[in-house]
């Protein structure tokens, strides 16, 4: 404390540009993961494994005759069921920054402000990638055999990451609007789980009444899962591809500008 005059004659260089700042925020998110490796293990390793085991063996016999049969249908859905709830975390991070005050410092620093959001949402993809890898590996162990081969699997995994990037913005907006981080997870889960279960993640919609089938097929989660299933099993067609990518673009087009706008215009009290 006694010698802050130390040896510092240095002044900062130019204010960082958008890319540099985004990179710094990505690094910050990686540090978060490294500092809380236990949380990452639970969220991206343990909980996907449990989900996959539960659904495979709980529903497998009843729905498809056997677990091995069912996992061919289920696994693409489990990828989404695992990753989408993880994207809620993007909102919690923003809300925590604001609630704990570090947002105040960010707002008084001379960098391209949206980098704070972009950086963390992009870097969060690493967590999703870990979860994807775990689910796929586990799935192969349980007898999942995608007809789409390695290329199909890679394409599906990439699409899941893209879809996660899209949904992140929804929760980033909620994270900006909420007062406390707990509210973010509460509100978001209330949106996420009904959407996840009222979809074709777990069951085929062809046995449902017509009206329900239409509603469920319009659910963005269903659209994404249909494409992922198609990519993994090598049956995806152009319409499914267009719908799947369209949903992501729509999510980004609506929620990214809104989120950034709210973030920048936020009044501090």
């Amino acid at each position: 404390m006694s010698s802050i005059q130390a040896s510092r004659a240095r002044k900062p260089g130019q204010s960082p540009g958008g890319l540099t700042a985004t990179g710094l925020f990505m690094r910050r998110t990686l540090h978060h993961m490294r500092n809380n490796i236990f949380g990452l293990a639970v969220e991206a390793v343990l909980s996907p494994i449990i989900m996959l085991l539960i659904f495979t063996f709980l529903f497998g016999g009843a729905i498809a005759g056997s677990a091995r049969e069912y996992i061919q249908y289920l696994l693409p859905g489990i990828l989404v069921l695992t990753v989408v709830p993880m994207t809620v975390y993007s909102g919690t991070t923003i809300c925590t920054d604001i609630a704990k005050g570090v947002y105040h410092r960010f707002r008084t620093l001379p960098f391209w402000q949206p980098a704070a959001i972009f950086g963390s949402i992009i870097a969060d993809s690493l967590r999703y990638a870990v979860a994807l890898l775990v689910v796929l590996t586990m799935g192969f162990g349980l007898g999942f055999r995608p007809d789409g081969g390695l290329e199909g699997t890679m394409a599906a995994a990439l699409y899941v990451l893209l879809f996660a990037f899209g949904t992140s913005w929804v929760f980033a907006l909620i994270g900006n609007a909420a007062k406390r981080p707990e509210t973010v997870s509460g509100t978001s889960m209330m949106i996420v789980y009904p959407l996840l279960f009222a979809s074709n993640v777990l069951v085929d919609t062809s046995t449902m009444p017509r009206w329900l089938q239409v509603a469920i097929d319009l659910n963005p989660i269903s659209i994404a899962v249909t494409l992922i299933r198609g990519l993994l099993h090598g049956t995806a067609n152009a319409a499914q591809l267009a719908a799947g990518i369209g949903v992501v673009l729509l999510l980004i087009a609506i929620f990214a500008p809104l989120t950034i706008n709210v973030y920048l215009r936020r009044q501090i009290r």
Partner: peptide, 20 residues
């Protein structure tokens, strides 16, 4: 105004970077 999930050193490096 600090990031509680980062270490003291990581905080300072982040802010230094954001200053340029």
């Amino acid at each position: 105004a600090l990031d509680e999930s980062l270490t003291g050193r990581q905080n300072l490096r982040l802010f230094a970077g954001l200053h340029g």
